[in-house]
Design a protein around this nucleic acid. Sequence first.
DNA 1: GCCGTTTCTTGAACACTGTTATAGTGGCCC
DNA 2: GGGCCACTATAACAGTGTTCAAGAAACGGC
Lengths: 178, 178
Amino acid sequence: MRKLAAELGISATTIYWHVGGRDDVVAALIERQSERLSDAAVTGTNPRERVASAARNVWTTALAHPNVTRLAYETGYSAKLELPLEISLARELVAAGLDPTRTRDALRGILYSIGGFLVMALRPPDAVPADRTSTALWGSVDDPAIPARTRDRITEPPDLDQLFERTMSALIDSILAR
Amino acid sequence: MRKLAAELGISATTIYWHVGGRDDVVAALIERQSERLSDAAVTGTNPRERVASAARNVWTTALAHPNVTRLAYETGYSAKLELPLEISLARELVAAGLDPTRTRDALRGILYSIGGFLVMALRPPDAVPADRTSTALWGSVDDPAIPARTRDRITEPPDLDQLFERTMSALIDSILAR
DNA sequence: GCCGTTTCTTGAACACTGTTATAGTGGCCC
DNA sequence: GGGCCACTATAACAGTGTTCAAGAAACGGC
């Protein structure tokens, strides 16, 4: 707050008078950003492609605005920020012919999985020191059932985008197969 | 720190002298807990079941100890806490015949998805006020492409355990199918 | 032009974090 | 008893978000 005020050349209390507490500032910021996100286009000519596209939009949009996304996540405004994209995804699931319950379960399942990927991708670099990372810890794993070559491979971080695509494909295939 | 010290009937500085800073206290706590978690049994008679079991262990163990899991997550010690269960999961993937790269990708894909579910399931109740929840926000969604009945269904939270099982099945099927 | 009210701005302060510097207190060995 | 060591506690520092009370500025009525 003080830092933000200093950057604006005003006093912290002025922000409190005009906008409100930290929470209100964040809320206003998220509100603005959310409106800008509403127009991510869904592409594809069949349900599979279109659902995948809508899901990918959540992922790429978040990656394109890491700071806002982090801030929203840390303050509990993720849902507000993502809502337009959630709606977009829900539309495609409905269009694919899913009934209400399956639509909800598909929507939530996809969103939760995306959330997991985003948590990994967007964590502030200083939140987890390098030596507490899973990849780092695997370096000293010595298990007879796990070949050294596999162990070393696990030490290297995966290609997040590729992994995301594959994971989504698996999920969506399963959802639309029924 | 002060609160913990008061609970123990000592002064905060005493903790600093004996254990160290907050980070050291958390690290010691996680270390202890991690040892207890190492012996979650993997069940099943075929790769599919055994991988699913190892993945489920991560999920159920975290749900069984929400406070430690949250603390570990917030302080960047998640990997340290979960490592035994990650190893257990990797063992099953190797046993299923996956090569090093596929093992890594499968491991990470599964873990990231579980992470997303855990974030949703374990968030401290006060972190996200009820009116910022996705389910709450969907209550006021009015989209011509989404039937009211579907909209209302999305308003209700899904069965997390069931959704977890289905999501894992889809992922594991896809991983082992190649 | 002056006065009074409302609108705005501000420095100081509060409560709360994690952390540390300083000043001790107690016990042990020689 | 003297000197050293292990340990404890009080007070303070720096950093959050937030509020209070006191002013400065703008505005309107006479």
